[in-house]
C-alpha cells in the first residue's frame, strides 16, 4: 500500500500529453505571432509615435503611459521603434531560414541519396561545417564579406545549416529504409517514383516544424551578431540594431536593451512553441 503510494506512476493521460504543448501556451504563442505579423504588415496601425521623430526634451525616459517602452537617447519612442523594426527583423529571420534550409536540403539530400563516394564526401563536408559553432561560422563569414543586413542573413543561414543538413540526411535515410519503401520496391515501382512519392514527401514533411523553430533561432543569432556591432547599423529600428544602440546606455537606461531583448525572446519562444506543436501533431498523424 505504502509502496504503491511511493512509486510515482505517471498517469496514462500525462504520458500521452508529454509531447503536446499546453493549450494556454499555444494560445499565447499564437497571440504573440499575430501581433508580430500585424506589425510586419501594418506597423502604422500599432505604433503610437513616429519611430524616427526626435524629441530631445524627453530623452532617456523610463517606460510610462505616454511611452510604453520608454524613450532612447534622442527621445524616440522605443515601443514604436520595436513595432517598425519587426519587418526587418522578421525578414532577416525568414531570409536566414531560407538560406539555411536550402543549403541543408541540397547537402542532406546528396549525402543520403548519391553514390557511395559522393555521399561520403558530402557527409564529411557536413561534419566539417558542423565542427564550427554557429556563431563562429557566422563571424568568419561576416569578416570575409563585411557587416551588413545581407551578410547577417547569409552568415546566420550558413551558420545554422550544418545541423539541419544532418537532420535532413537522417530523415531521408530513415524514409529510405522504411517498410513502405520496401513494399513499394517489392511492388516493382521505379526508383524515381519511390523517391518522388515516398521518400521525399516523408522526409520533407517534418521540415514544416523546423521552419518555425528556425525563424525564431535565426532571429536570435542575427541579434547576437547585431549586439556585437556586426549587423544592421543604428539608427535603424531593427531589433538587433536597437540592442546595439542601447548598449551604450545600459547603466542609465537599461530598458533600451532589456525590452528589445525581451521582444526577441518572446518571438523565439512563440516560434519554438508553435514549431513543437506542429511537430507533435505531425507525429500523432503518423500513428
Amino acid at each position: 500500500m505504502t509502496l504503491q503510494q511511493k512509486v510515482p506512476v505517471t498517469p496514462p493521460a500525462a504520458r500521452s500529453r508529454k509531447n503536446v504543448v499546453a493549450p494556454w501556451g499555444l494560445g499565447a504563442a499564437l497571440a504573440a505571432l499575430l501581433f508580430f505579423v500585424a506589425a510586419l504588415v501594418a506597423p502604422q496601425v500599432l505604433a503610437t509615435h513616429d519611430p524616427y521623430a526626435l524629441d530631445l526634451a524627453n530623452a532617456l525616459q523610463a517606460p510610462s503611459l505616454a511611452h510604453w517602452f520608454g524613450t532612447d537617447e534622442s527621445g524616440r519612442d522605443l515601443y514604436s521603434r520595436v513595432v517598425w523594426g519587426t519587418r526587418d527583423s522578421l525578414l532577416i529571420g525568414i531570409g536566414a531560414t531560407a538560406v539555411s534550409l536550402t543549403i541543408a536540403l541540397i547537402l542532406g539530400a546528396i549525402a543520403a541519396l548519391a553514390g557511395k563516394y559522393v555521399a561520403g564526401t558530402v557527409n564529411r563536408v557536413i561534419e566539417v561545417l558542423f565542427a564550427f559553432p554557429t556563431l563562429l561560422l557566422a563571424l568568419l563569414l561576416v569578416t570575409v564579406i563585411g557587416p551588413s543586413a545581407f551578410s547577417q542573413v547569409f552568415a546566420v543561414g550558413v551558420g545554422t545549416s550544418p545541423g539541419y543538413a544532418r537532420m535532413i540526411r537522417g530523415q531521408i535515410l530513415s524514409a529510405k529504409n522504411s517498410g513502405y519503401v520496401e513494399a513499394a520496391t517489392a511492388l516493382g515501382h521505379s526508383r524515381g517514383r519511390i523517391l518522388r512519392h515516398h521518400v521525399i514527401p516523408n522526409a520533407i514533411r517534418p521540415l514544416v516544424a523546423v521552419i518555425a523553430l528556425s525563424v525564431g533561432q535565426s532571429i536570435v543569432w542575427a541579434s547576437s551578431l547585431a549586439f556585437l556591432g556586426l549587423g544592421v547599423a543604428p539608427p535603424s529600428p531593427e531589433w538587433g540594431a536597437l540592442l546595439d544602440a542601447g548598449r551604450l546606455y545600459i547603466t542609465q537606461a537599461p530598458w533600451l536593451t532589456v525590452i528589445p531583448g525581451l521582444v526577441i525572446v518572446t518571438l523565439a519562444i512563440a516560434a519554438t512553441t508553435i514549431g513543437k506543436h506542429i511537430q507533435a501533431s505531425l507525429e500523432k498523424g503518423e500513428k
Binding site: 525564431g216 533561432q217 536570435v220 541579434s223 547576437s224 549586439f227 540592442l243 545600459i250 537599461p254 536593451t257 532589456v258 531583448g261 525581451l262 526577441i264 525572446v265 523565439a268 519562444i269 519554438t272
Partner: peptide, 10 residues
C-alpha cells in the same frame, strides 16, 4: 532558448 547577451544584461 535564452540569448546569452540578454541573460548577461539581466
Amino acid at each position: 532558448g535564452l540569448p546569452h547577451y540578454w541573460l548577461a544584461i539581466l
